[in-house]
Amino acid sequence: MNQNKYPWVKELGCKPCCELKPKIKIKNLSLSYGKRQIFEDINLEINTGCVTGIIGPSACGKSSFISCLNRMIEVVPSAKVSGDVLIDGKSIFDSRLDLNELRKKVGIVFQEPTPLPLSIESNIILPLKEHKFDHISERVEKALRDVGLWNEVKNILKEPANYLSGGQKQRLCMARTIALGPEIILMDEPCSSLDPISTDVVEKLIHDLKGKYTIIIITHNLAQARRVCDFVATFWYDGEKEIGQIIEFGRCIDIFENPKNKIVQDYVGGLKG
């Protein structure tokens, strides 16, 4: 890849994997829970193979926003979404679309590690069987190797997943998502309940996954955003309109070193939080 074409690749010292080709196009996306408007008219383009970070304070709609991207938001009965999300040019709200296929393509890793109450291997096997994959045991091994968990669990695959530590559980959840071969991975504060060592493992994993998958990660840890992201979107709660909105989107390095918006300047400078 031509590093001159993507100067930030060199500046950030990350793998040359970003392409400025949008994978996801978000058009005028609005969300409300009942009468409460969460965000309105969000427009954003997420580039293929990049890690896009979403930063900002709590309760400004970040988690709700990424839940729209695989339509998990529909689990909340009062949620009402308008606008459109195009993945590879196709709307995810198309009525002909198979919702389960969409969720296979757009995987999500939740904030809290939530292995299913099954054995370690069944946690990966069950979704694989559901989507009629073959060579299941090879896929399980590969996914566990990808998240660096294989050596730790290869002898206890039949034990309940709840035996694992917090960091291991979260990596198992990632393996479960990766095993399905998604194109996009959404991560909702994947490290918030992990210790620094497990966090390090997960960050390294994100680096390794970069390029293969398009990743969107919510994080409250600005240093982490700086370490892993290629692009960053800053969400902020607009007190006047009482809605969340994206106040600045750009390359990671620009957001952290040369933000245009005053609030973002204060936020990344540690003056506002």
Binding site: M72, V75, N100, T114, L116, P117, L118, L126, E130
Partner: peptide, 28 residues
């Protein structure tokens, strides 16, 4: 109680409701 947490996970992995009920909920 058991439903909320695991149901969300199962749906997010693109599983059908029936798989969730028979392979996850009832065994647990």
């Amino acid at each position: 109680p058991s439903s909320k947490k695991y149901y969300r996970v199962a749906l997010s992995l693109g599983m059908r409701k029936s798989t969730y009920i028979w392979s996850i909920l009832l065994p647990s």
